[in-house]
């Protein structure tokens, strides 16, 4: 992969994480392409012979841009109690691998994530971790996320809710 593209896309993902961690959700929304498919299937514990240990029939979310807009606007209301007072969040993004796609503007991007959250005055923190598969696209000279699939590693999530964007 062209090292400029690799660098640009990595920087784009870090910038995205910065916006989310600083609760700039409306700005984050600008990074999503209009036809984005944003999904998080379930990890399951199954025998090796089943091939995949993901169950894609059920998901934690399967959002369109419109669905994400509602979730974002909700966070700007006065009564989204789960984030008011806000939790403190960090998205650690690593192991970014960029591959070209059939369309010359699109790139298939794999990254690992570790999400940590501190809520209220609790000493114990929450975490989620796994892998993301994105299609990242150049639209009018700007990078946009055209598709994201979030694969959690836990079959029973240890976060009390999935109020965060991953």
């Amino acid at each position: 992969m062209n090292s400029d593209i690799q660098y640009e896309i990595s920087q784009f993902l870090y910038y995205e994480a910065y916006l989310l961690d600083h609760r700039k959700y409306r700005e984050w929304l600008e990074l999503l392409d209009d036809d984005i498919q944003y999904t998080m299937p379930l990890r399951v514990t199954v025998d090796n012979k089943m091939g995949s240990n993901l169950n894609t029939e059920m998901t934690y979310f399967a959002d369109s841009k419109k669905d994400i807009e509602i979730k974002v606007e909700r966070l700007y209301t006065k009564s989204a109690w789960v984030e008011n007072p806000p939790t403190r969040q960090r998205h650690f993004i690593s192991n970014v691998v960029v591959e070209p796609c059939f369309s010359s503007n699109d790139y298939k991007v794999r990254s690992y994530f570790l999400f940590k959250r501190s809520r209220s005055s609790e000493a114990k923190t929450e975490e989620l971790f796994g892998e993301r598969e994105d299609i990242i696209r150049k639209v009018n000279g700007k990078w946009k996320i055209a598709k994201r699939t979030v694969y959690p590693d836990q079959s029973v999530l240890s976060v009390m809710n999935v109020s965060m964007f991953l």
Binding site: Y60, F61, A62, D63, A80, N161, V162
Partner: peptide, 14 residues
Amino acid sequence: FIATFGAAGTLEQD
């Protein structure tokens, strides 16, 4: 269903 309920549902979060 998943938009409103389940771990990421907008209603269930609160």
